[in-house]
């Protein structure tokens, strides 16, 4: 595993133990953003476990997770895949200049009804 440091950091941040996964795929069965994702929740778990983290860091899938916690609640093994996705996303956006959402692009995304909550949440998720 050439990503040992990152691997351990992800586990520490997320509190997830990917070894508990029994490969049932219920997380991906329940995921509302599945079709938009290149890598699906169960792949996040197995790829992190195998140290295959680089493709995840560069994938748009990081920004498709809705953090709806459906996979967290429905996982029979208590793996909590969403927390792992979040940790990988933070590992990506915490880097200098790696913000996924730039303030300049926001005004075009708004309409008259956009609630403040939407903007705040998107920034929390996509930028550091």
């Amino acid at each position: 595993m050439n990503n040992k440091y990152l691997y351990e950091d992800l586990l520490r941040m997320s509190g997830v133990n990917p070894k508990k996964c029994m490969r049932c795929g219920k997380c991906s069965a329940t995921c509302p953003a599945y079709d938009e994702m290149e890598y699906h929740p169960h792949q996040f778990v197995s790829m992190v476990e195998n140290g295959d983290i680089e493709p995840l860091l560069n994938s748009d899938s990081l920004y498709k997770c809705l953090t709806c916690f459906a996979c967290v609640d429905r996982c029979p093994r208590g793996v909590e895949p969403a927390k792992l996705v979040e940790a990988v996303r933070l590992a990506a956006v915490r880097k200098q200049g790696a913000n996924h959402l730039k303030a300049d692009s926001v005004p075009d995304m708004l309409d008259d009804e956009t609630p403040q909550q939407l903007i705040v949440s998107a920034f929390r998720k996509y930028s550091k």
């Binding site: 795929g25 069965a29 995921c31 599945y34 079709d35 699906h40 792949q43």
Partner: peptide, 10 residues
Amino acid sequence: QASDLLENKQ
């Protein structure tokens, strides 16, 4: 709504 892990499909 289900997953097919071998096909990697929902």
